[in-house]
Design a protein around this nucleic acid. Structure first.
Lengths: 358, 358
DNA sequence: TGGTTTACTGTAATCCTTTACATATAAGAT
DNA sequence: ATCTTATATGTAAAGGATTACAGTAAACCA
C-alpha cells in the first residue's frame, strides 16, 4: 500500500510556482493567470494531488462534517430521517458521522463530545438528551438542531411534526367512526412525542364527553417493540371490557396489536379498529393495511440538515419549533364501530345512545 | 455562541509547564511526575480543554475515522450491518462517516475520494464498485474491506455468507418438500450475490434431474422492491403452468409474492410455497411467517469493521473471502407439495412419480 | 513623465498538535 | 569523586494547508 501523499508543496515545486498560487487556484480565492493555471492543473493531474482535509480544516477552523446522534439505525423511522440528512449533507458538500446511542445516557454524552473536540461543526440530535444541563451547555456553544424529539426549543431549533394535532386528527377519525371505547397503547419512554400524543388522546376523549379509563392505557416498551405492542393488545382484548378501537402511538405497536387480534380470532376492522403512527414503509406490505399518521421522515431529516447548514454558514441562530406537515392516511385497519352488540355494549348504550352512529 | 477553543498552549501557560509535558500527559506517551500531572489535570478541568482532533490527526497522519459506503440506509438489511459497524467502531474509538450511493456509479466514485483526501483511514464497501479499475487503485493504496457484496477478493478481503451453500440449502429444503416446479425471483442487478444465488438455483435443479425453465426465472428490481416482487409473482402464478414453489432471493420479493398469491386466492403454504432470503426483522411480523435464509447482518458489519481495524492497526493485509454462518430457518411459508392434482400435474407425474413425496 | 491602479505572485505566519532532540537534575555504580 | 543512567521537562521542528502582507510588473491616467 503506497500511502505517500503528494502535497501542495510538491505541486508548487513541480509547476514552478509558490504554494500560495496553487492554493489560490485550488480554492478559487483569487485570480491566477491562465498560463500558470493551466500548468498547475496539469501537474495536479499528473501527480494526483488531493488537498489534505485535516490540514485545511485545521487552518480554516471548520470541518465540514456534521454529527448525527440517533438512538438506533435499524429503526426504519430513523433510517429514513438519516437518509434525508445524508442526502442534504451530500448536496451541501458536508459529510456526516453517525453516532448511535441505543438510548444510553452515557453514550448520548459521549456523542456530544465530538463537538467539543472540534471534530464536527455541528450536530443533529434525534435522541432527546436526558441531561438537560449538558444539552444546554452544548447548544449554547455549538450549532445544534433537534430532529423529531427535543428537550428545549429556546436554545436550539427543533423540527418535527405537530404531534398534538396529528394525534387529535387520528382520535377525531376514530371518534368519527363511532368508537367510544378507545384504548391507547403508548410507550414507557419519556419522549416529548409520547407525552404529547398521550395528552392529545386524553384531551380528545374528554372533549367528546368520554371518560379516560386508566385500564385503557397500556405502555409498550420504550423502543416500540412489536412484541410489547402485541402483549399490550392481548391484555386489552382479553379484559372484561375490551375496547372497540386501539390508538397506537407507533406502527409497530399497531402491527403487534393486529397479530394479537388475529390470535384471538378478532377480525379487523370489523370487530376492532387499530390505528398506527409514523407510516413506516411496511404499513402496506400486509393486509390489513394500516390506518396511520404519515410523518415526512425524509423531509424531517433534510430540513434539519438544511437548518443546521444555515446556522453554520450564515451564523443564523433561529430557534423554536418547526412543524412539517403530517397526514392522516386512512386505510384498512379502521372502520365504523360494529353493530353487533354485547351485553356490555347494550349497557353502555343507555348512556351513550346518541353517540352511536348506527 | 462562544466558540473560543482553549488550546494546549493555554493549559501549558496556566499550569506553568511546556506544551510538550501537557501533550505527554494527555497522550500518556511518557512519564510525568505526579505533582505536575496533578497540576495539569486540574487546569485541564478548569479550562475545559479538549485536544483539537484536526491538529492531532494532521500531525499523526491518522484520522481514526472510517468510511461506510452503502447503497441505502433505509433498507433494513443494510441498516443492521450499519449497526454492527458503528458498534464496533465505537468500541475501537473510531468514528464512522456514512456515504450513501443509491447505487449511482458516480457517487460510488465520489465516496472513494474521501480516502484520497485523507479524511478517513479506511473504508467498508457495501456497494460493489461498478468500476473495477477504480476499486483496484483504491484498494491497493488504502485499507478497504468489502462487506456483503464484493468485486475482487484478491486485493481486499470480503466478509459475507456463503451464498452458494445457503441457496443450495434452501433449494434442498424446497426439493425435499416434494416440489418440482420451483420458480426463481431474482434481481436485475449485477451483484455477485445475485449471480451466485441464481447459479445455485440452477445447479440444484439440474442435480435433481429437473429442467431449468427460463419461464420460471423472473427478475425483480435491482433494489429488491416489494412491488416488483409482487409483479413477478403475479406473472408466474397467472402463467399456463404455474410453479408450486417460488425461491425468492430476497425477503421483500417473498412479501410481494405472498401478497400476489393472496390476491389470486392462492393459499400459502397449502397451494404454494414461498421462500425468502436475508431474514429481515419483519419476516415474523405477519402470518405466514416466512421461511428464509437468516444472514447475521449485525455480525457481518461487526466483523468487517474489526477486520478493517486489524488492517489499520496491525498493518495486516489478509485478503480473501470470510464466510459467516447462515441459517435456514423454516417457518410457515413453505410446506409439502399439495396432493390435489391439476391435469398438468398428472401429466408431469408420469415422469416424476418417484420424486413425489406423497 | 510621474503617479496610481490592476493583475499576479511570492514570503512567511498561522492553525494546534505531536515528537525528536536537547537539557537538567537526581540517583546509582564504580 | 566521577561516570552512567534514569527521570522529568523544555525547545523547536514538523505536519499540510490558508492567507495577511508585501512586492513586481504592466497598464492606465492626467
Amino acid at each position: 500500500m503506497n500511502r505517500s501523499k503528494v502535497t501542495i508543496k510538491d505541486v508548487a515545486l513541480e509547476a514552478g510556482v509558490s504554494v500560495a498560487t496553487v492554493s489560490r487556484l485550488v480554492n478559487g480565492t483569487s485570480i491566477v493567470s491562465a498560463a500558470t493555471a493551466a500548468k498547475i492543473q496539469e501537474t495536479i493531474q499528473k501527480l494526483g494531488y488531493e488537498p489534505n482535509l485535516m490540514a485545511r480544516n485545521l487552518r480554516k477552523k471548520e470541518t465540514r462534517v456534521i454529527l448525527i446522534v440517533c438512538p438506533n439505525v435499524t429503526n426504519p423511522y430513523y433510517a429514513h430521517i438519516l437518509a434525508g440528512i445524508t442526502e442534504a449533507s451530500y448536496q451541501q458538500g458536508f459529510s456526516a458521522v453517525m453516532y448511535t446511542t441505543n438510548c444510553d445516557p452515557e453514550r448520548e454524552l459521549e456523542g456530544i463530545q465530538m463537538l467539543y473536540k472540534g471534530r464536527v461543526d455541528g450536530a443533529i440530535l434525534m435522541d432527546g438528551l436526558r441531561d438537560h444541563q449538558v444539552f444546554y451547555n452544548a447548544a449554547s456553544r455549538f450549532p445544534i438542531v433537534q430532529c423529531s424529539e427535543y428537550v428545549d426549543t429556546e436554545i436550539a431549533p427543533a423540527v418535527c411534526i405537530d404531534n398534538y394535532q396529528a394525534s387529535r386528527d387520528m382520535m377525531a377519525h376514530l371518534l368519527g367512526l363511532g368508537h367510544t371505547k378507545i384504548a391507547l397503547i403508548s410507550s414507557n419512554n419519556d419522549y416529548v412525542s409520547t407525552k404529547i400524543r398521550t395528552q392529545a388522546y386524553k384531551d380528545s376523549l374528554l372533549e367528546a364527553g368520554l371518560p379516560v379509563d386508566p385500564e385503557y392505557i397500556k405502555l409498550g416498551s420504550s423502543d416500540y417493540s412489536f412484541q410489547s405492542g402485541r402483549a399490550c393488545a392481548l391484555e386489552l382484548l382479553q379484559s372484561e371490557n375490551p375496547p372497540s378501537a386501539i390508538f397506537c402511538i407507533s406502527d409497530t405497536f399497531a402491527f403487534g396489536s393486529i397479530i394479537a387480534a388475529k390470535e384471538l380470532g378478532i377480525t379487523i376492522p370489523e370487530e376492532l379498529s387499530i390505528s398506527g403512527f409514523d407510516d413506516v414503509e411496511y404499513t402496506t406490505m400486509h393486509h390489513p393495511f394500516i390506518t396511520t399518521i404519515a410523518q415526512p421522515c425524509y423531509e424531517l431529516g433534510r430540513t434539519s440538515a438544511q437548518m443546521l447548514f444555515e446556522r453554520l454558514e450564515k451564523h443564523s441562530a433561529e430557534t423554536g419549533l418547526v412543524y412539517l406537515d403530517h397526514q392522516l392516511v386512512v386505510r384498512e385497519s379502521t372502520a365504523k364501530k360494529k353493530t353487533y352488540l354485547t351485553h356490555q355494549d347494550t349497557d353502555l348504550m343507555v348512556n351513550n345512545y346518541s353517540k352511536e352512529k348506527k
